[in-house]
């Protein structure tokens, strides 16, 4: 069954109830509490923090990602259930940010995992996060957030990159 064949209802339900996995890897995690609590209140959009990947829809990569953590992130991502979305925070997952020449952080996340949405900034402010989530919701409704499908299709390619990263540190260069 293709994504397009999904009923509109299921997409709207998915959009209105984004459950976020509390798997925060880098410094961006500190921006999440204000988003959840009274000041910005993400719950009004139906978003809620969840404890385990089985329950969650959205995986937040909140900042730099070491190779060691990458292994765990991939495990967690594969434990999530379709449809699932990845949102990458800050500049580190885009191009390495201030850690671009570090020996143990990866520079480009979408070599290893299909990223649906990048959120630039170091760090993005809570308003930015809310804005990104709204953007993701629109993408879901339009059927554009299809990272999970891409991951299934190009599984070999992603796997190869992941293996390389585990062996040699990073594969971007």
């Amino acid at each position: 069954m293709k994504y397009e064949e999904w009923s509109k209802i299921s997409r709207i339900a998915s959009k209105k109830s984004l459950w976020i996995l509390h798997f925060c890897t880098g410094c961006g995690a500190i921006e999440m509490p204000p988003v959840m609590t009274s000041r910005f209140d993400m719950e009004r959009f139906g978003m809620a923090p969840m404890a385990t990947p089985r329950q969650a829809d959205v995986l937040l990569i909140t900042g730099y990602l070491t190779v060691k953590t990458l292994k765990r992130v991939i495990q967690v991502y594969e434990q999530m259930q379709d449809p699932k979305y990845v949102v990458a925070f800050g500049s580190c997952p885009i191009n390495g940010g201030m850690y671009w020449d570090s020996y143990n952080t990866i520079n480009q996340l979408d070599k290893y995992l299909p990223v649906d949405l990048y959120l630039a900034g170091c760090m993005p402010r809570p308003e930015g996060i809310i804005n990104a989530m709204m953007e993701l919701m629109e993408m879901i409704e339009k059927g554009e957030a299809r990272g999970w499908e891409k991951y299934r299709k190009n599984y070999e390619k992603y796997k190869k990159n992941q293996e390389m990263a585990f062996k040699f540190g990073k594969v971007e260069e």
């Binding site: 798997f23 385990t52 089985r54 292994k71 765990r72 967690v76």
Partner: peptide
């Protein structure tokens, strides 16, 4: 295939 704080038991 269980979630134990993201840890991988088979490692």
């Amino acid at each position: 295939d269980n979630f134990i704080g993201g840890e991988i038991p088979s490692l």
